[in-house]
Amino acid sequence: MGEQEDQNTQSTSNSGQAVRATSANLNPDISAIGDFRSFYTSDGSRNWDAYVQGVELNFSSAIDPYAKAEFYPVFEGEGGELNAKIEEVYLQSLSLPYNLQLKAGKFRQAFGRINTVHRHALPVIDVPVAYENFFGEALIDQGFSLSWLIPNQSFYQELIVEGTRGSEESPLFAYSEENQPQLLAHLKNFWELNENSTLELGLTGAIGDNEVSQKTRIGGIDITYKWSPIRYNTYQSFEWQTEFYFSEFEQSPTEAINAWGMYSWMQYQLSRRWYLTGMYSYSENPQLVDFEEQAISATFGWYATEFQKLEFGPKLSTQNSFSDSAFSGLFRWVFVIGSHGAHQY
C-alpha cells in the first residue's frame, strides 16, 4: 500500500509558513537536465553510437522587484567530449509600463516557435532538417529584446523586436565589423478557439550581416494548433505545429541565393504517459544551390513523470535523391533534477 503520510510528514500549525520564512529561498532555483542519446544509422562506416548529447544547468531567480535573471550554462556533447559554454544568460524586466518587457543578454531569439525552446523540451529527438539548415544549433545572439503585449482585448497579440550584435552561432549571420545590428521582429497571435483548443499564428522577419559581409534576410511563418480537453488534459492531447522559413543570402552585391524550408509535426497523446509524434521536414540549403533535403520521422515518447522521458523511433532522411537516403533508429533519455520552470505553452 502506498504510504503517502509516513514518518516523514507531520501535522503542523503554521510550521509550513515558518519553513518558507527561514529557508534559503534567496538562493536561485537550480536545475540540471541530462540528455542522453543513442542511435543506429545505415549511413557511414560506424553505424551506432551512445553519448551524452548535453547537460543543461539553469539558475533562475528574481534579482529584485524589477527584474529576474536566467542563466543556462550547458555542456554540449561533441565527439564524445562535453564542452562547456553559456547558452543563455539574460535579465528580464518584470514590470515596465505600457505592457512592455525588456530582455538583455544572450538569449535564444524570438524566431518562430522552436527556436525559443530548448531541445530537450521538443517532442522530437532530432530537430527538423529545415531548422538545422537555416539556424544551425540555434539562432542565439547577444543584445536586447523588447516585447510589447499589444492592448488587444479580443485575442492575445505580442510584438517582439530585437537588436543584437550579429549571431556567430548561426550559419546565415555573422558579427559585423560595420555598425550594423542584426534586427528581428516577431508578431505572435494567439486565439482560444474554445476551452479545449487554441490556434497560434506567428510571423517573423530577421535581417543581418553574413560571413561575406553582405545581407541575409530570413522570414518565417509558424502555425500551431493544440487540442487538449480541459477535464482530461493529462490523458489526451493533440498538437499540430508547422513552420516555414524563407531566406535570401546575399553572396555579393549582385548575387543572392533564395531558399525555403519547412517542417510539420503532429503529436498525439495516446494515454497518460505515451505520446506519438510524426514529423516531415523539407529544406533547401540557404547557402548552396541545387541542394535539398527531406526527412520523415516517428517518435514514441514515454513520459514517466514531468521530470523524465524516454523517446525512440525511426527516421528516414534523404539528400537530393533517394539514392542518398539514410535510415536511423533514434533513442533519447531526458531527465531533470531540481526545480525547472515551466516551458512556454
Binding site: L149, N152, Q153, F155, Y156, E158, K188, F190, W191, E192, T198, E200, K226, S228, I230, R231, N233, T234, A342, Q344, Y345
Partner: peptide, 16 residues
C-alpha cells in the same frame, strides 16, 4: 472546476 489544478495549460490568453 473540473480541471486538474496541478496541470493547467499556461495559455497566453490568461496573460491578457
Amino acid at each position: 472546476g473540473y480541471q486538474n489544478p496541478h496541470f493547467v495549460d499556461p495559455k497566453p490568453s490568461y496573460i491578457v
